[in-house]
Design a protein around this nucleic acid. Structure first.
Lengths: 215, 215
DNA sequence: ATATTATTTTAATATAGATTAGACAGCGCG
DNA sequence: CGCGCTGTCTAATCTATATTAAAATAATAT
């Protein structure tokens, strides 16, 4: 029996169903994320995915109705995971943290997940522009949700008077996310620690957004 | 006679040879840049390029030895154009401009070329990670040259005492370029003018890089 | 141990897309 | 006029890759 793309576990709850079958499915998704993040949408061949998942290409069809269904799941779960991760981090912060402190935390959360954990995230980020409409729509929905979390972060800063008045908040948000997203394109472990990237990014974002300090 | 990829004119000097043939070649390159920036490396089909250039796919082989040669030229000329553009803008600035003022100008130059002019630039930016090694190497060389211009901009600011000491200059540079590069992914004319993007980007970069103002 | 179901494999199929071959039109020139 | 060159086209080739079909193997239940 071929099962219709079953609900994939969230990051927080990585799957109640931990059968051998579920693990194989996960292995295929992981492989697809890996290839997708490196080769792009059109460059992702099922044979490559299969090789990395250590099985034959047709076996993929036992778990996914089509190549595009597989890709779609990788794409949206990449962003969904990012959002879940970010929200979990923010929720753990406690109420005494300033709005700008929360933005610092968000910068770190985004960078760490992107750089150290997830092929899903980079697959999702890099291919956002290239996938066909069918796949894209669901991903756009996830992106919008993620953007909303950030919009709130910046709005809170603004309301606390911690945002330069000469910034367009939406543009500022996109520029920040761009700086973070792009990190996956150039960072490698060989060139400095993630910690150093996080630190510099936090400093730049904080000072880029904050009004001039009045001495 | 098939000519080996002839030297493409620079931005400043768009080709001494303005024959009908040269124009057709240009049309093919333009079409390839357009498709490449939207569909990615593997997704770029010669038939699509041909359609946009208003000829049949095999005609492309009269001007380029292979698909990859065509792609390669788009990819490196995208960055080369960006660098020429940036250098031209900087050279026009005059010596009284501060290092940070020059960075402002660079931010504007980068954004304007990326957003208003060039499919080449976005093709080059977006597909940097996906093209095969053969193509990539030449592009990496161009990227390095472009990075050098920016490195100098930031170094000059640093030597003038206009750079926060707690920033890693290389990381800061990559974060700035990331914010700028990413703009192509979200900006559309419908959502605000380029001018507003430029202004917000300049403000954020300037304040992100500058030491705290002592009042 | 055997029947049944789940999983994976190997062997077709089908199509898309790069590339090549060969023909053809326009054109300057002897 | 007929020749050679440039630029383009149509038809043919060839390969890669998604997908389907038909087994074969593994696992589980009876």
């Amino acid at each position: 029996m071929v099962r219709k793309s079953a609900t994939r576990g969230t990051l927080v709850d990585p799957g109640l169903t931990d059968t051998k079958s579920a693990r194989t499915r996960e292995r295929i998704l992981d492989a697809a994320a890996y290839i997708l993040s490196r080769k792009g949408y059109s460059g992702t061949r099922l044979s490559d995915v299969a090789e990395r998942a250590e099985l034959q290409a047709p076996a993929i069809y036992y778990y996914f109705p089509s190549r595009d269904d597989l890709v779609e799941e990788v794409m949206w779960s990449g962003i969904a995971t990012m959002r879940e991760h970010l929200i979990a981090v923010l929720d753990a912060l406690g109420p005494e943290i300033t709005p700008m402190g929360r933005i610092d935390a968000a910068v770190e959360a985004h960078l760490r997940l992107e750089l150290e954990i997830s092929d899903y995230t980079t697959a999702s980020i890099r291919n956002a522009g290239q996938v066909p409409e069918k796949i894209r729509s669901r991903q756009i929905a996830e992106e919008a949700k993620y953007g909303t979390v950030w919009r709130k972060l910046i709005q809170d800063a603004s309301e606390a008077g911690d945002l330069r008045p000469d910034l367009d908040p939406r543009i500022a948000r996109m520029l920040v996310l761009g700086a973070l997203n792009w990190a996956a394109e150039w960072w490698t472990p060989r060139r400095g620690s993630i910690q150093s990237v996080v630190k510099t990014a936090q400093t730049m974002v904080r000072n880029g957004l904050s009004p001039d300090s009045r001495g």
